[in-house]
């Protein structure tokens, strides 16, 4: 096994990540305005920005879903119990003792098992909740004549904001975990450059050097 810098975040994934960062922040800000938690911008403006940001994010998601399936990247998020116990033990105990993170990134598996599960929950549970409720909110007029729509819009609104707080909680955890390594930059850099330190088997290393030399660099 040798440690090399391998490009594991292709340009699209980085674009997707950072666009999503901007859109989610904008939507959190405007969403909380609409919810009545602050009044820093006019309501009508918040409606416009929130809705158009949502539409952009939906478009981005359509591309992202397509990208996940066509490139096989979705496999990174398949839950796995392999090493899960060790990661949980690390975050709840080992980290306080100065132990090293037990998970080594593989180039075919860039997330540790806990991380993969967290992202999967975000992608399959929280994001769909906010999308479905958001679209229902936006198109209320079309289903308003349905029976007990008054109750349903209340449920939709509450689930929407619950999911929003869920995303916000995810964001702060996501940011907090960046402080757990050697340096912040070490965590952020891969999302800018695409390269991260990966343990490669001799076969993987040989393959990458032979067939995808641009994806592999020596460790800086």
């Amino acid at each position: 096994m040798s440690e090399r810098m391998v490009k594991i975040y292709p340009p699209f994934e980085r674009f997707w990540h950072w666009s999503q960062v901007i859109l989610v922040l904008v939507m959190t800000f405007t969403g909380f305005r609409l919810y009545g938690l602050h009044e820093w911008i006019p309501y009508q403006q918040a409606v416009l920005v929130h809705t158009y940001a949502a539409l952009l994010l939906m478009v981005l998601w359509i591309f992202a879903i397509f990208w996940h399936f066509t490139t096989g990247t979705w496999k990174h998020y398949v839950p796995s119990a392999d090493g899960l116990g060790q990661v949980i033990r690390f975050y709840s105990y080992g980290i306080f003792k100065g132990e090293k993170h037990p998970y080594r990134k593989a180039y075919w598996r860039k997330h540790n098992p806990l991380q993969a599960m967290a992202y999967l929950a975000l992608k399959l549970l929280i994001f769909p909740t906010i999308w479905i409720t958001g679209i229902a909110y936006l198109t209320y007029r079309l289903w308003e004549p349905a029976a007990s729509s008054g109750l349903w819009i209340e449920i939709v609104g509450n689930l929407h904001v619950l999911a929003a707080f869920g995303i916000l909680s995810f964001i702060v955890m996501h940011l907090y975990l960046m402080t757990t390594g050697h340096s912040l930059w070490e965590h952020i850099r891969p999302m800018f450059t695409g390269y991260d330190e990966i343990d490669l088997s001799p076969q993987e290393e040989a393959y990458l050097e032979a067939d995808e030399p641009s994806r592999i660099k020596p460790v800086a």
Binding site: Y35, Y43, L162, A163, A164, F165, G166, L168
Partner: peptide
């Protein structure tokens, strides 16, 4: 009636804020 913004911290907001 449901008026977005008229009831900050309804049940969903309260639960969400608690989780947060």
């Amino acid at each position: 009636i449901h008026i977005p913004g008229a009831n900050p911290m309804g049940p969903g907001g309260k639960l969400g804020a608690l989780i947060f």
